[in-house]
């Protein structure tokens, strides 16, 4: 469904962020993109939606359902962003406009982007929040972002991201900025929504264990290059690239993970 082919990205004259990245995500599949910060994971995600920083030169192709995403512009690009591919970013407090209440965020996605009538959007906003495990729906809808915790707000972002029933979810370290206590909850909700809607996911994280727990395949990224792609078990039992090996060894000892079964400890 999503095919990234030889994607390279350079900012300014000589700051190369991505080098010939190639990666595919099949319908319904979850692919993890693992690497340390600055390795180019986020930039890969952002290039898919055309939101790389201004002044970046991008080469290579990205296709979604056979359509060359990078050549899209205007209304076609907008539709793709609104209906087909959603993104969850790292820091929910930065994602929501600080001066607009949560309800406006959800309505903006459904009404202004997806074109649903305002009335429907208002009704669905509440349902969506319930779906991501929020109880005090009315209070949250009326709240401004700064009044909510990061975990609560990330649920709101997830609710917004699934509102249009997209087929691909791009998740950029969705739990990194959250309290340790809520990380697992938010991850579980995200995983649940994905299974419910049958969405594919490209999941960026620096946490190999977490990626192994929720993904079907994992790509390891270093210095803008993908150094190894494989099943979680393969990476665990038989890492090919020295960097993957180093990543495996640097994990806290005693943590076991099962390829199929969600985060365990």
């Amino acid at each position: 469904m999503l095919n990234i082919d030889n994607l390279s990205l350079t900012i300014g004259p000589d700051l190369q962020i991505l080098r010939e990245v190639s990666l595919a995500v099949a319908a319904g599949e979850a692919v993890g993109l693992v690497g340390e910060s600055g390795s180019g994971k986020s930039m890969t995600l952002r290039s898919i939606l055309h939101i790389e920083p201004e002044g970046s030169q991008v080469t290579g192709t990205i296709t979604f359902d056979g359509v060359d995403v990078r050549s899209l512009s205007g209304e076609a690009l907008r539709r793709m962003r609104a209906n087909d591919v959603s993104m969850i970013a790292q820091n929910p407090h930065a994602v929501l406009n600080p001066v607009l209440p949560v309800e406006r965020y959800l309505i903006e996605g459904m009404h202004d982007a997806q074109g649903q009538p305002t009335k429907t959007a208002k009704l669905r906003a509440g349902e969506l929040l319930e779906q991501v495990g929020i109880d005090a729906v009315d209070r949250v809808l009326r709240s401004y972002p700064h009044q909510l915790s990061g975990g609560m707000l990330q649920r709101v972002v997830i609710a917004g991201a699934i509102a249009g029933r997209p087929r691909l979810m791009l998740a950029d370290e969705p739990t990194t900025a959250l309290d340790v206590t809520t990380q697992a909850e938010v991850m579980a909700i995200l995983d649940e929504c994905r299974h419910e809607l049958g969405m594919a996911m490209l999941f960026v994280t620096h946490d190999l264990d977490l990626a192994a727990a929720v993904c079907d395949r994992i790509a390891v990224m270093k210095d803008g290059e993908i150094v190894e792609i494989g099943l979680p078990v393969q990476l665990r039992d038989n890492p090919q690239h020295p960097y993957t090996r180093a990543l495996m060894e640097s994990r806290p000892a005693g943590l076991a993970w099962t390829p199929e079964g969600g985060p365990t400890s």
């Binding site: 962003r81 609104a82 993104m87 929501l96």
Partner: peptide
């Protein structure tokens, strides 16, 4: 928030 609004298709 502006970038993400664009990314959401606004």
């Amino acid at each position: 928030h502006s970038v993400m609004a664009r990314a959401r298709g606004v």
